[in-house]
């Protein structure tokens, strides 16, 4: 590229801004879901039904935002995700059913239930339903920075909320006794119980909180991105979140960074399409998963999953 060509340079800068903005935007729901799954898995419960929670959240957002606005939409999305997760926790933690199979049922329930309700309440899906959305909120000053300003500081409020959640979750897990107990339950439930920790209650709470964040991910899809609802619009984000948790090594900061990696892969797709390149972007989308598998295989010591992950012990 000709360095003397200011137009070309601006084009590149715009493309870069667009890429970064898209990466952060697509990473937001993933970060919510991945942090939710991090909480659950740190307590020893793998919730493969998170996909269902995301869908429940998306549908909850649609229903409530139409009546009560964006705020009600977000709140309802969290409640819907938490409700489905509570059913999951009841089966898995209290009744001791298999986590994987029960989780699969939750995914089907979330996908099928929202699809059916949507078609029933809103018709066969012909008319594109639009809901109020959370527009971008520019952070004064910062949003004026070149390239990164529009990308990072002119995002919907939920994106800032997701970013804020990272240190909050970190603080909870590593700086409170409840967080310490939660991590212990995921590693050695017997030892935790011997130390006086109410393991079953903690696991239940962790799963429900994780489901609420999964629901929030769905709410973000509807209220901050699509502006509408579509059947199956979670498009596997619940499963992506499980991958991100692995990639992020069961750590909230890792989950946020992992979400950005997956977000960037998606944004790369937009960039490739926008630039008219004929690169197989689907392979870029697959890349983070391969990366995750590699990370999992090569993980040593601290990168291991919680020792009691998936085990029935309550």
């Amino acid at each position: 590229m000709d360095p003397q060509d200011p137009g070309g340079r601006r084009l590149m800068a715009d493309a870069l801004t667009g890429f970064l903005e898209a990466a952060v935007r697509t990473a937001t729901p993933l970060a919510f879901a991945a942090m939710g799954e991090t909480i659950a898995e740190r307590a020893g419960v793998i919730n493969v039904g998170l996909e269902g929670c995301v869908m429940a959240g998306a549908f909850g957002a649609l229903v409530a935002a139409g009546a009560g606005g964006v705020g009600a939409g977000f709140a309802t999305s969290a409640v819907a995700g938490a409700a489905l997760a509570a059913l999951f926790a009841l089966c898995v933690v209290r009744l001791g059913t298999d986590q994987i199979i029960t989780g699969t049922a939750m995914t089907l329930l979330g996908l099928g239930g929202t699809g059916a309700l949507y078609r029933t309440w809103y018709g066969a899906g012909g008319a594109a339903l639009s809901v109020p959305t959370a527009g971008p909120m520019a952070v004064p000053g910062l949003s004026k920075l070149p390239v990164v300003g529009p990308a990072f500081f002119s995002q919907p409020v939920v994106t800032y909320l997701a970013a804020l959640l990272v240190p909050v979750l970190w603080w909870f897990l590593y700086r409170t006794h409840a967080g310490l107990a939660l991590r212990a339950v995921g590693e050695a439930p017997e030892a935790a119980r011997a130390a006086g920790v109410a393991t079953a209650r903690l696991r239940t709470l962790a799963v429900v909180a994780g489901g609420a964040l999964g629901g929030l991910a769905g709410g973000t899809l509807v209220l901050a991105q699509a502006g509408t609802f579509a059947e199956g619009m979670s498009a596997g984000r619940g499963f992506v979140a499980i991958a991100i948790v692995v990639l992020g090594r069961w750590h909230p900061v890792g989950a946020a960074l992992g979400a950005l990696v997956f977000g960037a892969a998606t944004a790369l797709q937009f960039l490739i399409q926008a630039m008219g390149w004929t690169l197989p972007y689907q392979l870029f989308l697959a890349l983070p998963y391969v990366l995750t598998l590699g990370a999992l295989a090569l993980a040593r010591g601290r990168g291991r999953p919680p020792a009691a992950l998936g085990q029935a012990s309550g």
Binding site: Y174, R175, T176, H177, A178, G179, L180, A181, R183, A184, E187, A188, E190, A191, A192, A194, A195, G196, V197, R304, P306, A307
Partner: peptide
């Protein structure tokens, strides 16, 4: 048979079961 969490530090194991803020 010890009731310890192998993946955690000595301080964390000792503090396990407490309430409120956890200060390592």
């Amino acid at each position: 048979h010890f009731s310890l969490v192998p993946a955690m530090t000595v301080a964390e194991n000792v503090a396990l079961g407490g309430r409120g803020r956890f200060d390592a």
